[in-house]
């Protein structure tokens, strides 16, 4: 049986993994390669790295870091941040990342999804999206897409955008709820489920994981295929093995051998 994936997310700022809440209060957590190895050895199914200062500093993704991670772990990982065109995607993939994540860039230029999928295959192109609860009449699902680290509202409906991105060739969609992000109070299940039921590609729940039952809800109630964890594991409050133990007890299929 295909297992549900647990994906630690590492936000990298100036070569260090940091954790903040809604882009504030950044705390230094450690070296990206050392953390990647520790999570891989501890049973993480996949990793995602966001080079969170790349776009603001108008520089490309830290390729040295991507290559160092690729040399050190043997599980798939995705990279986001600092990608502005197909040649940036190619550099990230050739350095050894399995997937490239695009977010604000794809809102500005949706064609990047189609171009990336054509060049590298849909499985390499991940659409990240930051929906927020909204009463904007242009957003019938009740969720609006934000960009640039939640700073800009786009007037785009989150479910419509997910469908369009999947049509364009996104191989996977990460639904990162602005409302839940950093709260550790649980995933935003409504928008996660709406998107999981609307698109034919895997959906990754993101934002709000604080305890294993939150992941069980994302899988069992919102039908996510994978879930991102950050604070709950970075702080040492939970290990991946503990999360998987609890998920297995809740009837969620998880990878047991690593």
């Amino acid at each position: 049986m295909l297992t549900k994936r647990i994906i630690p997310c590492l936000d990298v700022r100036n070569g260090r993994v940091t954790k903040g809440v809604k882009f504030k209060n950044n705390i230094d957590l450690g070296d990206p390669v050392e953390m990647a190895v520790a999570y891989s050895d501890g049973g993480a199914d996949e990793l995602v790295f966001y080079d969170i200062t790349a776009s603001a500093e108008r520089r490309p993704t830290d390729i040295g870091m991507v290559a160092a991670v690729a040399e050190s772990i043997r599980i798939p990982f995705a990279v986001g941040g600092g990608v502005s065109d197909v040649s940036d995607m190619e550099r990230v993939i050739l350095a050894g990342a399995e997937k490239v994540s695009v977010n604000s860039l794809a809102v500005r230029n949706p064609q990047i999804i189609a171009d990336g999928a054509k060049e590298f295959g849909a499985q390499c192109v991940v659409l990240g999206m930051d929906p927020v609860r909204s009463d904007n009449p242009k957003c019938p699902s009740g969720y609006e897409i934000t960009t640039r680290g939640f700073r800009e509202f786009t007037g785009m409906d989150a479910v419509e955008w997910a469908k369009r991105a999947a049509d364009l060739g996104a191989g996977e969609i990460v639904v990162n709820s602005v409302d839940a992000d950093g709260t550790r109070a649980g995933f935003e299940l409504t928008i996660t489920r709406l998107i999981a039921e609307a698109v034919p590609v895997p959906v990754v729940a993101s934002g709000g994981a604080g305890q294993p039952s939150h992941l069980a809800d994302a899988f069992n109630l919102a039908h996510a295929d994978a879930a991102i964890v950050a604070g709950m594991v970075h702080t040492g409050d939970w290990t991946i093995a503990q999360i998987k133990h609890d998920l297995a007890a809740a009837g969620v299929p998880v990878r047991k051998v690593w």
Partner: peptide, 22 residues
């Protein structure tokens, strides 16, 4: 219903250890 295609992720081989499929 409920099975996305492509299959992406870790699945068991011969009911034992999981490997990564896409």
């Amino acid at each position: 219903p409920g099975c996305k295609v492509p299959e992406i992720g870790w699945n068991q081989v011969n009911g034992d250890a999981e490997y990564y499929f896409v």
